[in-house]
Design a protein around this nucleic acid. Sequence first.
DNA 1: TTAGGTGCAAAAGTTTTGCAAACTA
DNA 2: TAGTTTGCAAAACTTTTGCACCTAA
Lengths: 146, 146
Amino acid sequence: MQLNCILFIMNTYKTILNNTGLKATKSRLGILEILKKQQKPLDVTEIAHQLAAKKISPDHVTIYRILEAFQKRKIVQRVELGEGKFRYELARNDHHHLICKKCGTIQDTPSCPVGKMKKMILQKQHFLVERHALEFFGLCKQCQSL
Amino acid sequence: MQLNCILFIMNTYKTILNNTGLKATKSRLGILEILKKQQKPLDVTEIAHQLAAKKISPDHVTIYRILEAFQKRKIVQRVELGEGKFRYELARNDHHHLICKKCGTIQDTPSCPVGKMKKMILQKQHFLVERHALEFFGLCKQCQSL
DNA sequence: TTAGGTGCAAAAGTTTTGCAAACTA
DNA sequence: TAGTTTGCAAAACTTTTGCACCTAA
């Protein structure tokens, strides 16, 4: 990555942070960069490792606190993929995950049929859906032929 | 609950257990009864409490092991509802949960639009979906008017 | 300067593991 | 009796909390 690109990103993220009332610290910028680059949600340990590769080594507690602050401001969202721990990704619109039970790869899927369902739930069960979690578990392309 | 009913249930569950190669112990039968009666998935602490009410007090470790054995045999299924812990319910066909963010009630919803989506995912992304998790978070009927 | 952020130590909560004793079939 | 199942002790792992020190704005 070139210097001007780094600076561009840092300015962007700095702006995001300042606009939401957060100070732009190394750890926070680092976490945003890492999550941005990532195509799959990361857990705290993975985030810590990737930060370390950037020569940033905050305490795990700090990472948790940063992620909590980001979550509160809808910058990131927390997901559970059946592992007994949380993963984090930059907040995006409806998209869901395809988790391979063999190799563990996590890929995205953009389509979401749930919109219609929300209306039905409101009509029939009078429950007002605000958000939903939808995850798929199965076999990715490669693993189907192994 | 009447005596003959209790016996009926115990026989039924005993049969289930024996048929899957599990011995019918008090804790196992108790857990099955509790999950059967329940309309929502329970976590281990809740199961322990409800067992205690039945004068059955196994160690938490035992409950975890029983639930693991049940899961392996598809008698129960484990779900995550964004709490950082697992909940367990008797295995059933596609149905999903409506979790109220205010009062915490958990109700079922029977409809599931995901079947169609699975086909699309296979066609477009070559991922073979085996199972999926779909949970809804929002406001139940009562809490909408508070 | 100061409100906000971080590190350290400790703890809380959930889940797992190993081994010896107890129990079901 | 034999193979399962359970209890106890301990630990692994994830996440949270409190307080003193530090830092970005």
